[in-house]
Design a protein around this nucleic acid. Structure first.
Lengths: 186, 186
DNA sequence: TGACGGACCTATCGGTGTGATATATCTTGC
DNA sequence: GCAAGATATATCACACCGATAGGTCCGTCA
């Protein structure tokens, strides 16, 4: 029984406390989403697989009347999580970035349109950076409360990541201005 | 008839000259792959769709005997490409990064294991940066030959992107050393 | 000559993940 | 008491990926 990457996200979330599938999604949407998104279509089947494998335990929570199943991580679930965190070898990573893709083909555009595209990309990453910065106070509070430093450090990595693209847009705009003033003079 | 993102990659590749499906994949594998990967499973169905929509034209190339179909972009194909490049609104972008994902959950590890994870990530991005730097001479030559500046600029963006993660690993390692020397003293 | 490896070329398939949505229940505010 | 919205589970059509099947052509070395 193999555990997929999504399975480890679930294990990681449950390591910090029992949760329903809905809560797992909600937590992921304000944290791991920015570097590893998950969807209901993965969560519910994966919860069943993980339970079958004995890595988590589900319990019907009739406490407040609403129908829900709350899952907890088991001892072997914690082992599997730590094994994955320490596993050597290739770390999968991929990027899908429509802005850079358009830039790659942007020789088909004229000067002003290229600058406009660059602006579009910069605006997008500026917005993303601000969205992440908005989460920071809550993440700082949670870090002090739980003593866990890594979620906050990854959030800051996310903010720096967005800033990288903003800066890169600035650099590219300067580069384009140089090139075009020498070769594109009418 | 809607054109998917993959369709625009194909249109962009054909804008620079006629190609077979195989050649499109080969070109993408040393250029757009790093921010937008495509596979045969997408290419061939998409070529049929684009041809049906009149955006590209396929021609059986019996010139050298081997069975192949070479596709060229049509006038309306060029229009569609430029329309997409200029289209305002949300630019899709997503990241799937197992290293940062593991970092997020790395409070479940101890100090040395966290540092080791950081090293793993740094090594990976260092290798990627070197791989991209290896392509640079060919890209520079192609830029001078064709007069197209953007492919080279996106390659440099890719190199800077890999470097960002290398630097970020350094920063995080320093941060961890600080925190643990004050709070983790035994 | 002819066997073989490697490059070229088209095509498909199983499996995974996404985004949107259906369905239902409970809580909150008015 | 009822509308709006949060909570919760689940599914479906679609897109995409990686691997591979199935085939042609070319250079080269025995």
């Amino acid at each position: 029984m193999e555990v997929g990457k999504t399975g480890y996200v679930i294990l990681g979330m449950l390591y910090k406390g029992p949760k329903s599938g809905y809560e797992i999604k909600a937590k992921a949407d304000v944290s791991t989403r920015f570097f590893w998104a998950i969807s209901y279509g993965q969560i519910y089947p994966e919860l069943r697989r993980l339970e079958q494998a004995g890595l988590i335990e589900g319990e019907a929570d009739a406490g407040n009347g609403r129908q829900r199943r709350v899952f907890s991580i088991t001892a072997s679930g914690e082992d599997a999580l730590r094994e994955w965190l320490k596993r050597p070898g290739e770390l999968h990573s991929e990027l899908r970035h429509e802005g850079v893709l358009r830039l790659f083909f942007a020789d088909a555009l004229d000067r002003d349109e290229r600058i406009e595209l660059l602006n579009q990309i910069r605006v997008k990453h500026t917005r993303m950076r601000e969205e992440l910065a908005g989460i920071e106070p809550a993440a700082t509070a949670l870090a002090e409360e739980t003593g866990d430093a890594m979620p906050l450090l990854t959030l800051e990595t996310g903010i720096a990541y967005q800033q990288f693209f903003v800066d890169q847009c600035d650099r590219l705009e300067r580069r384009l201005a140089e090139t075009e003033s020498t070769t594109g003079g009418s």
